[in-house]
Design a protein around this nucleic acid. Structure first.
Lengths: 201, 201
DNA sequence: GTAAACTGAATGACGATTCATTCATATTTA
DNA sequence: TAAATATGAATGAATCGTCATTCAGTTTAC
């Protein structure tokens, strides 16, 4: 009846494989990661991986799906408690950076590995990412209705700019040799996004 | 003395290999591209590739190096003719998007393939990309000195935001099924970056 | 004629996936 | 209760296809 082998131990192995895969993918890249490495790090036999996942690719997908679901769910819940659109955007920025800070290896898989092929990107784009962008767009449009944000701006483009800025913060953080806090960057992004860089005329 | 076979025919083959590789990498991704595909598309034998390049990886590097050199060279020259910092940034944005529009396959290699491994990203980061970001930072600082841009903003972070926004425009353009002009996005990015999204108080 | 350029079949390494086997645990039987 | 049997999760060695790279031989250019 159960789709997976484990009935007693509560999905232990599947979980272990995913955790292990995040580490391995993060350190060597998807294509350079061997299924044997993943199995090894999870302390199980190579073949066991295939009792839980159809293929190496499905592992990557699962990592992404799980993380994205959690992220969007979390985000939506938190936004319900906020009513000003600019504050909502600020919260999104904070959450985005916080989540990425929390698990550096997961962040690497997201920023780097997931983008290594158009195929993944397309799947990514039309699934979780689109949903995330939609959330930002809706928030922005709300702000325009409230006359908080300029009406002469295209909400979709603005949302992409917003996302792009955050995304770049994360990428830089991952590649940087120096350790620094990612979260405070949310303020900087908001300062520029809301007010622009021009000095008062 | 010449590192490569061709002395007479003006580097024809090397060029053909690079052009072919850009197409192949763009359509299947670096790791899924076979050297045989590249050779085939360039209408030469598999072995000939190795007369011009040490390895498959060197091909990818060459693609990147060439494009980046051309891009930065071009950019610097064009900026010399402009004197206001905000206009310079606008020109950078335009150039960035124009270049990417010009060769969609090259853009795909840049946006997608080059980011598929931390290894490449790191090399990328510390070479061409750092130089490009430096150009933006310098321009921004200039603008701050001229009191054109706000003094309370960190130039490095602002430059990353600026780059991140442009980068996201390109990524979306590549992944989009619909055909649209990339260049006009430069104006949109400038509107937001210079003036922010808040309505006048 | 010979040196440089080119060819493409052969090589060798690699690594995802498979599957025959093991073994711990659950179930049945007496 | 305890021995006999069944179950299916887990194993890991073997398989099988896939390329990057090489190199012995061929063609081209002068």
């Amino acid at each position: 009846m159960a789709r997976n082998p484990n009935t007693k131990n509560g999905g232990d192995k599947r979980e272990a494989i995913l955790r292990s895969a995040i580490k391995v993918f993060a350190s060597k890249g998807y294509f350079n990661s061997k299924v044997a490495d993943i199995a090894g790090k999870a302390k199980i036999a190579d073949g066991t991986v295939y009792l839980y996942f159809k293929s190496k690719e499905e592992i990557l997908h699962s990592i992404f799906d799980r993380a994205m679901d959690e992220f969007i769910g979390d985000g939506k819940k938190q936004l319900e408690e906020i009513h000003e659109s600019d504050k909502k955007l600020r919260r999104i920025a904070e959450l985005h950076l916080e989540k990425m800070s929390t698990d550096r290896n997961l962040a690497i898989v997201f920023q780097v590995q997931l983008r290594g092929s158009i195929k993944f990107m397309r799947e990514f784009s039309s699934a979780g990412f689109a949903q995330y962008l939609e959330l930002i767009i809706k928030t922005f449009e709300e702000g325009q209705k409230e006359k908080l944000f300029r009406k002469d701006l295209n909400p979709v483009i603005c949302s992409k700019i917003f996302f792009g800025a955050l995304d770049e913060m994360v990428t830089n953080w991952i590649l940087s040799k120096k350790k620094y806090e990612l979260r405070p960057m949310a303020d900087e992004v908001m300062k520029v996004f809301l007010g622009g860089v021009m000095a008062e005329a």
